[in-house]
Simulated scan of single mutants.
Amino acid sequence: MSPEPPDLTRLLRDWTSGQPEALTSLIEVVYPELRRIAAQHLSRERQGHTLQPTALVNEAYLRLAQQGPGKQWTDRTHFFAVTARIVRAVLVDHARARLAAKRGAGAIEVELSEADGRVPAPPVDLLDLDAALEALEQLDAQQSRIVELRHFAGLSIEETAGVLDISPATVKRDWLVAKTWIRRHMNGEIPA
């Protein structure tokens, strides 16, 4: 009989209360999931991209560790919601650095698709997606957050609903509306 996995919520609370060793245990528990999320995002990039899943997870870990014990974590979904924002920031920073290095050529492309991968979508430029999410946030912060949680953290409808404390039906509706709005914005159908 295998030992029961450590309770993520307990590890988060231990880390919050100032136990630095809890961060090490926490990363051991969540690393496989973070690596899966990173690999999922990077698999949608153009051929020959330079950021590897391990590098993305390591950079996310460093930024997460900087959050420090002062951060109040509620549970697993809250942790992955914060992680989604961090992963998004790492990807956008990498895309901007690469774009600057190429002087405007070779922007990184990713797909905006269903989190479970059933419905593939055409690749989109990560910087355009980030700009669209920022514009959507000005109109509807909840819809922007839903896209971030579903796309960047890979959270399910139910997990997203739990993080935002709304119904799964609301998440489904807003997810559909937000994806449509983002695609229209990125296609130039909605003024910037």
Rank of each mutant, 00 (worst) to 15 (best):
E137P: 00
S167L: 11
V177C: 04
D75E: 05
A101M: 08
E114W: 12
D130W: 10
E111G: 11
V110N: 09
E159H: 05
A192K: 10
E114M: 11
R85L: 12
A84Q: 02
L136M: 09
R13Y: 03
R184N: 13
A153H: 00
T50G: 14
A178S: 08
T9P: 00
A153I: 05
L112P: 02
E21K: 10
S113C: 12
Q52Y: 08
N187D: 15
R13G: 00
E33Q: 10
R46Y: 08
V110T: 15
H41E: 09
L11D: 02
P123C: 06
V119I: 15
T9D: 01
R63Q: 11
A65W: 11
I190T: 07
Q66F: 12
S25E: 15
W73N: 00
H94N: 10
D116V: 11
E189M: 11
K71R: 15
Q138K: 14
Q66T: 11
P69Q: 13
L62R: 13
A97M: 10
A192P: 06
V92H: 04
D125S: 10
L12K: 01
A101K: 12
G117I: 07
L12R: 00
W181K: 01
I108Y: 06
E159W: 02
A97Y: 07
A100K: 09
G106H: 08
Y31M: 10
L56I: 03
Q40K: 12
A55D: 13
Q19E: 15
R44H: 13
Q67K: 11
R183F: 13
F79M: 05
W73M: 03
L133N: 06
E33I: 08
R145Q: 15
P168H: 04
A81E: 02
V177Y: 12
F152I: 06
A161M: 07
W175M: 09
L112M: 15
L155M: 08
A38V: 02
L112Y: 07
L176Q: 14
G70C: 02
R184S: 12
R88V: 06
G106V: 07
P168T: 06
A169Q: 14
A39C: 04
A161H: 03
L56A: 05
L133V: 09
E21S: 14
V177A: 12
L34Q: 11
H49Y: 04
I166G: 01
D93M: 07
L149E: 00
L11P: 01
T16Q: 15
N58V: 11
E111I: 10
H151N: 08
D75F: 00
R76A: 05
L64V: 08
G68R: 03
P120A: 13
R150H: 07
E148V: 13
R85T: 13
L112I: 14
E114P: 04
E109P: 04
P6F: 01
R36A: 14
E59H: 06
D174N: 14
I146N: 02
A65M: 07
T50E: 15
S113Q: 13
A132I: 06
T74M: 00
Q52F: 09
W73L: 01
G104S: 03
G18P: 06
T50A: 14
N58G: 05
E45R: 14
P168R: 05
P191I: 09
P32A: 03
L64R: 03
H78N: 06
L56R: 03
A161D: 04
E159C: 01
